[in-house]
Design a protein around this nucleic acid. Structure first.
Length: 355
DNA sequence: TGTATTTGACCCTA
DNA sequence: TAGGGTCAAATACA
């Protein structure tokens, strides 16, 4: 099944690339005012390629991409109690279906993820002691290859009692030991936090992420209620910077006196982040983090196909997005960096995939 | 196959 | 006794 999925991915990529190339040719034809017949032929080829790609997606979804329970988990950050099926996730008598469920529970790559950088002061030198408004229980610590300091793993204290699947990883920065890099995964669904617990990202917002990341129009964001939903972030007593889990392009946010956040200078004036109004509150919900993390080098495909995005995170993002929308590209798991999309080629995520 | 992540058992502490 | 940290082992993933 794995091999079949890989083969389908390869075919899918080929079809999409072919479609893109044909679109490029069509553009050349348009520029040179070629005959209507040749352009019509190209259009037919393009449509054919994308139809094939969509067919591949549709047929492969039930097998390798369509794991509804996984999608639900990705949407809300709360897998549907995968561990409670047999009592123990390590049971060797798990049948195949349960094996799939267990896969969801183990490395929950689908969960939205973002990273805080917390500078520790004399007031809280102990790692992980900063108050981010939630109750955590440490469940592991591991030395990470190439890192000076071990990484600690925390999960929500109320995982079992309230089925809250939020986790975080805390690791001391190699460069600056006074900074702890805290990576959050999933959103809290428990009600024990010091702060109001944000509801899981709604499908509408997830859809918004997919289709509107290529806009740097602050007014548009506000009109859709996105900015107004910004929640005050972790209440940390320390100087704190927040960045996001697009490793190669982490954006820094320096906390200011009034507990708001401002760009730390990584981004230039053309960046989408500067289109947000200031003061900017700490990202607290994944969807907003991904908004902030959307790349300055925007291009097509809803603005998410940045060459700077690391592939795993990009796949995460896409999965998170699509899982909430029942889009045909659910769990699309191909190497996006193989696709060199023409900057002028406009994917209309909604229109394109809904036909 | 090596590494990262998660689990459950065990222990400590308030 | 409940809650949290430590640790070895299991497991997923690249």
């Amino acid at each position: 099944m794995e091999h079949r999925g890989n083969r389908e991915q390869g075919t899918l990529i080929s079809e999409l690339i072919q479609g893109m190339e044909l679109a490029k040719q069509l553009r050349v034809h348009l520029d040179t005012a070629s005959s209507a017949e040749s352009m019509d032929l190209l259009v037919q080829k393009i449509l054919s390629s994308y139809e094939k790609a969509l067919l591949i997606l549709q047929f492969s979804r039930p097998m390798s991409m369509g794991q509804p329970q996984q999608n639900v988990g990705a949407t809300s950050g709360v897998p549907e109690s995968p561990l409670s099926i047999n009592g123990s996730p390590r049971s060797d008598d798990l049948d195949k279906d349960n094996q799939d469920t267990r896969d969801v529970s183990k490395k929950r790559k689908m969960l939205p993820r973002w990273t805080d950088h917390v500078r520790v002061t004399s007031e809280n030198l102990l790692e992980g002691t900063h108050d981010d408004g939630y109750s955590w229980r440490k469940y592991g610590q591991e030395d990470i290859l190439g890192a000076k300091y071990p990484r600690s793993y925390y999960r929500c204290t109320y995982r079992h009692t309230q089925d809250c699947w939020a986790t975080k990883q805390v690791q001391k920065s190699d460069e600056d030991p006074t900074i702890f890099e805290i990576t959050y995964r999933g959103t809290h669904t428990c009600v024990h936090g010091n702060q109001p617990v944000p509801p899981p990202a709604s499908p509408e917002k997830q859809e918004y992420k997919l289709t509107n990341l290529n806009t740097n129009n602050n007014q548009q964001l506000q009109s859709q209620g996105i900015l107004s939903n910004l929640r005050k972030g972790p209440t940390v007593n320390t100087e704190m910077a927040t960045s996001f889990s697009f490793p190669s392009t982490s954006f820094g946010w320096l906390k200011t006196e009034n507990h708001s956040f401002s760009p730390s200078g990584v981004l230039d004036n053309n960046n989408i982040l500067n289109s947000f109004s200031s003061p900017f509150t700490s990202p607290a919900t994944p969807e907003l983090n991904y908004f902030s993390a959307s790349q300055p080098q925007m291009n097509s495909f809803g603005g998410m196909l940045s060459t700077q995005n690391s592939e795993p995170d990009l796949k995460e993002l896409i999965s998170a997005n699509t899982s909430a929308t029942n889009s045909p590209i659910i769990d699309l798991d191909f190497s996006l960096d193989q696709l060199e999309l023409d900057p002028n080629f406009q994917f209309d995520a909604q229109g394109f995939f809904s036909s």
